[in-house]
Structures are given as C-alpha cells and as structure tokens.
Simulated scan of single mutants.
Amino acid sequence: MSFVDRRPASTGLAALALTAALAGCAGPQAGGPSPQRPDFARQAACSSLLPASHGGPMPEGDTAVLRWLGTSNYELAYRNTVVLMDTFYDRPARTRPLGFDVKDVRRADAILIGHAHFDHITDVAPVAAATRAPVVGSAITATTAQKLGVPAAQTVTVRGGETLRYGDVTVRPTHILHSTIQPELIPALANLYRADGLGPLTEAEERQSKASSARGSWDPKIVTEGTMGFTLELPGGFNITWFDSVGDIHPDERRLAAELAGRMDVALFPWTPHPIAERQLAYTFQHLELFKPKLYVPTHHDHIWGVWLDNGLEPLFMKIRDELPGTRYASPLYRSPICLSTSGPTRGEFHVGR
C-alpha cells in the first residue's frame, strides 16, 4: 500500500491526514497494513469489489465511489445514482479477465459512451437492455448504438454544452478530439504478440476476438467529430471529468478548462495506447497541464490482446510528481473502489480499496 500526495513538503504533514491508501497504485509498494481507513470510507461500498451496477452496495451520505472496469470503463456510484462510462466488457480472447461478465451488469441510470470504437462501445446493447438507461454520446455513437440493437428512443445525441441530470448527478458533455494512431503502429503491436512466443490464437479464440472487435464503428470522423468528454457534477460543485481518448486540445476543452479553473476535483484521462512513453506523454500531460486536476486517475492503459500493450504508468506519474505538485494520482485495480469525500471538511480526500 502507499500514501500518495505530491504537493510541496510544506503541506506534507497536513496531507498525511488524507490517508489516501492505494492498492496497486503509484509510488513504492509496502507489504504492511494500509493506513487507517478514513471515517467517510468506513462503509460497505468502500471495501466491496462488487460494483454498484452489479448489485453491489451503494455509498452512503456524500461519499462517491469510482471503479475502474477495464480499458476506459468506469462506474460512478453516488447516493442513489449509478453512471456507467463506456461498455467494453466482452473483450478479445486472452485479454485479462475483468472478474465479471456482461450479464452481471444490471443497474445504471445513465450510460455515457465517449466514442464508438469497439473498445468503448462493444456491449452497449445488452447493458442498455438490462438497465433501461439512456445511452448518451455523439451522433456517430448514437447511430452505432442503434445498429448494435439499442432502441433509438433510448439514445441521447449530444454535441457538447448540454446539461443533463440523472438523479443527483449533473452531466455536461464536451466535444473533444480523439488521439491519432499511425497506420503502421497497430500491425506492429500485433506482431509483438506473435513474436513473443505465446503462440497463435486458436480458431475459437479468433472467432471470439473478431466478434468483439466487429461491434463498433471505424468511421474516420470519430477522430474529429465523434468523440465526447463528460463532466459529472455532484451537489456542492464536486466534479469528475472523464475522457476516453485524448488527442490535440480542442477549443471546447479550453473553454471547459476556463470554466473549471482551479476546481477540477477528479480527472479520468487516458494514458494513451502508444507504446513509447514520450509519445504518450505528449497527449496525456498537455491535458493535465491544462486542467490541473486535484486528483488524476488513468484510463486506457491496460492491454487488449493483439492490439494494445500494458502501458507502465511510472513515466507519467513521475512527471506529475515533478511538474504538477498540486495534482495527486491513483491507479486502482479492476473493480477496486476509489472512495471520495465530496463535501465538508474532508472534501477531496480519497481512499482506494484493495
């Protein structure tokens, strides 16, 4: 476990009271017991590995719980509201198991889809059918969701700038740009999997992988027109901004950054799938510099067999530590709760369960 606070030493003693106990996160890992769980995190939702969307415990009071569900999938549970971000659960063969199946997802009040590539939207139809929640995204996303089986009446098309409310969560979409992948990069990464002596996929594995990757859109306009970011605001102004891709900074992002200047509580931004850290840093860090979140949590950094590699977070975390001392960071394991205090004297404190 490790306590992570990257502010200057002058604030370090006060920061120890935050007890941000991190499992599988940045910083040296210790084998001893976790720091004491703060009072706001002494509840079932902050120790359970069962997501709220699967019937797990909901947080109490003004505690919010975030869970990483692989790739860029996240879940927010707050009061009586559950928001899902992306729905890519049935992943290609040999990709690391998430610890649950698509059929386990049965509760949501809103489904936000950042863009319609397969590794973000694959399971939108069964999740929408099981939860009856609206599917929110760009026009390309809405069209793709409908092709996958979501009723048109259950989709909500946004362009950016709208205000949507689901329970006690206000959702504001922002038009953003998708990252750019060089054409030769994807086959090069696929070759690495073949060259590393792990053997080819079986026929059954090939079928499963092709079926997963077919459930999405390859429309080139996704890069410039079809990608949305979302800011989720809770009562009292506590906010969480989630992007499932980061490319060059769009003017709408600058407007959002100006609106949230000095008060972005949590940023969920991708550590992009480029295998070379210097290239990744160019995309991700410019967004962290622009928004200067109080807490950064990465997305899109784990592998998809034959497509993306596991991407080590240390280069990014070291750069945050050295250049953005006001930003803390946490990298949870699949399904581990990140419990956030969103109000009162402990506002902004967080605890990450095992």
Results as ranks from 00 to 15, higher is better:
Ala9Arg: 04
Ala9Leu: 15
Ala9Cys: 08
Ser10Leu: 01
Ser10Pro: 03
Thr11Val: 02
Thr11Pro: 00
Thr11Leu: 01
Gly12Met: 13
Leu13Ile: 05
Leu13Phe: 05
Leu13Ser: 06
Ala14Arg: 10
Ala14Cys: 04
Ala14Phe: 11
Ala15Pro: 04
Ala15Ser: 06
Ala15Cys: 04
Leu18Gln: 03
Thr19Leu: 00
Ala21Asp: 11
Ala21Val: 07
Ala21Trp: 08
Leu22Asp: 04
Ala23Gly: 02
Ala23Asp: 09
Ala23Lys: 01
Cys25Tyr: 06
Cys25Pro: 12
Ala26Tyr: 11
Gly27Tyr: 11
Pro28Glu: 06
Gln29Asp: 15
Gln29Trp: 10
Gly31Glu: 06
Gly31Leu: 15
Gly31Lys: 08
Gly32Arg: 13
Gly32Met: 09
Pro33Phe: 08
Pro33Tyr: 09
Pro33Gly: 07
Pro33Ile: 07
Pro33Arg: 03
Ser34Thr: 04
Ser34Gln: 09
Ser34Gly: 05
Arg37Gly: 11
Arg37Trp: 02
Pro38Ala: 02
Pro38Ser: 03
Asp39Lys: 13
Asp39Arg: 15
Phe40Asp: 03
Phe40Gly: 01
Phe40Ala: 00
Phe40Cys: 00
Ala41Thr: 03
Ala41Lys: 10
Arg42Ser: 10
Gln43Ala: 11
Ala44Pro: 01
Ala45Cys: 13
Ala45Glu: 02
Cys46Thr: 10
Cys46Ser: 09
Ser47Gln: 02
Ser47Cys: 03
Ser48Gln: 01
Leu50Ile: 11
Pro51Met: 11
Ala52Glu: 05
Ser53Asn: 03
His54Gln: 14
His54Tyr: 07
Gly55Lys: 05
Gly56Met: 04
Pro57Cys: 13
Pro57Ser: 09
Met58Thr: 11
Pro59Asn: 07
Pro59Met: 03
Glu60Tyr: 01
Gly61Lys: 08
Ala64Phe: 01
Ala64Cys: 06
Leu66Pro: 01
Leu66Thr: 00
Arg67Ala: 09
Trp68Cys: 09
Leu69Pro: 10
Leu69Gln: 12
Leu69Trp: 06
Gly70Phe: 02
Thr71Asn: 07
Thr71Phe: 05
Thr71Asp: 12
Ser72Glu: 01
Ser72Asn: 02
Asn73Glu: 07
Asn73Gln: 00
Tyr74Trp: 15
Tyr74Glu: 12
Tyr74Pro: 15
Glu75Gly: 14
Glu75Leu: 14
Glu75Lys: 05
Glu75Phe: 09
Glu75His: 14
Glu75Cys: 13
Leu76Ser: 08
Leu76Thr: 04
Ala77Cys: 11
Ala77Glu: 13
Tyr78Trp: 00
Tyr78Lys: 00
Arg79Met: 00
Arg79Gly: 04
Asn80Gln: 15
Asn80Ile: 04
Thr81Ser: 15
Thr81Val: 08
Thr81Arg: 15
Val82His: 05
Val83Trp: 13
Leu84Val: 04
Met85Val: 12
Met85Gln: 13
Asp86Leu: 08
Thr87Met: 12
Phe88Pro: 08
Phe88Tyr: 12
Tyr89His: 00
Tyr89Ile: 15
Asp90Lys: 05
Asp90His: 07
Asp90Arg: 10
Asp90Pro: 06
Pro92Ser: 01
Pro92Glu: 02
Ala93Trp: 05
Arg94Asn: 04
Arg94Lys: 08
Thr95Trp: 08
Arg96Leu: 03
Arg96Asn: 00
Arg96Trp: 00
Pro97Cys: 02
Pro97Glu: 13
Pro97Asp: 14
Leu98Asn: 07
